[in-house]
Write a protein that binds this DNA or RNA. Sequence first.
DNA 1: CCAAAAGTGTTATCTTTACACCCATGG
DNA 2: CCATGGGTGTAAAGATAACACTTTTGG
Lengths: 237, 237
Amino acid sequence: MTTSSIDQRVSLAVSTVIFALRPHPDTGLMTLWLPLVRRIREPYEGMWALPGGPLEADEDLAASAQHTLERTTGLAPNYLEQLYAFGNVDRSHSDTVGYRSSDRVVSIVYWALVRQDEVARAVDGENVEWFVADDLPPLAFDHAQIVDYALARLRAKITYTPIAHAFLPTEFTLADLRAVHEAVLRTTLDPANFRRQALATKTLVPTGTCLQGTSHRPPALFRFEAGAPTPAPEEQR
Amino acid sequence: MTTSSIDQRVSLAVSTVIFALRPHPDTGLMTLWLPLVRRIREPYEGMWALPGGPLEADEDLAASAQHTLERTTGLAPNYLEQLYAFGNVDRSHSDTVGYRSSDRVVSIVYWALVRQDEVARAVDGENVEWFVADDLPPLAFDHAQIVDYALARLRAKITYTPIAHAFLPTEFTLADLRAVHEAVLRTTLDPANFRRQALATKTLVPTGTCLQGTSHRPPALFRFEAGAPTPAPEEQR
DNA sequence: CCAAAAGTGTTATCTTTACACCCATGG
DNA sequence: CCATGGGTGTAAAGATAACACTTTTGG
């Protein structure tokens, strides 16, 4: 009952919403960025789209997302989670007219977190460009809604799951961690209360060392403690 | 970049975990049940599996889940949400040996809530049978893990989202609603506190009428108030 | 008038939030 | 010795949990 027929006009792709933090060009404040790829064929030729590709026959879904990430940024993700499977019949030709309805595509979309400083500069430039996540150009297909959804999920999840460290090096201060939360959520957070909440999660281990050269009291450095491994597919609460 | 090649050995299926409440055969307590379908071909012939089928070319994903539901129970779901896309290369031949690796199948799994009293008796019997969700026979493929995941999601979600009403008729008492929560979560809940919490969500509207003939004080009847419509694909928080 | 559940009230406890204040360093 | 964030303390406000108590029906 679960096996499927062979020749259907439905093809399967895996796309990935890749987030990184970098200063906003105008304000200088830390903001979310993501890489897009310029389409080189119809439909939506010339427009920007999420990186991705067809699912290979011998490839796991998450592996496909990882390969896309490697191709686009030159790195492995610090965090990777399935977002949603988008597969409505009409999603290829949403509001643009004039295109013949192409083959139907079901996209399984992942979202990932990487460190901007790790991104290989070399990969950039070709057909890949990074954009401020909240200020994107018009996107191909339904990718704008997908990004919105990924943003919502990231912002929700960072409030109840320790994923912020995925934007940071292995050792970091509580101010660093707080800066990530503030950038993602676009708020300011009380340093005192944030500290207590963060420590209460029991996911931070003090390294014992302090960061030096700060023109003020040296802040303690922490490391992220793995805790229990991921349970079911992904913890989505 | 998102479009896919044509002839890959990957086929797409949609399965659905359908939940309903019914008294437990031993204890008589309300419990979660779900329908399974007996497989009539290899692999896993004769074993029980989640209802589902191949995705039709002109069918939306959620529509496919609805059609499965209609076929299996004779009704439309009161609640339907995408659970996860399972697509690991090895998931067909998990731990059973002796089967040639069949075509690879990616399953997009939905979960649904229905009212047991609405289920058409007729549909039952054929190859469909209902089981206590926490006490299932061995299942085909990776369906046991999928059900576990669906159960976890339902139990998590009922605590912070008003979905319990999907098990109830349009008019119900707070005791009814509490009984649903207790059955799903397998606990007892304080009636006084439950009442306040439920009313605090602002999703319940009193009908003005009371249920009569109870051998005690007649409880007020409520109706579920839709509230804001579903935002992004599905609210997964 | 008794049992049983509906519904309201009250208090203790825990969590969240705001903000005062001391600490340690570089300049 | 001063500016700057690091780090601790604390009290008000809000949410949660436990449970006493009053209400309204059927038998």
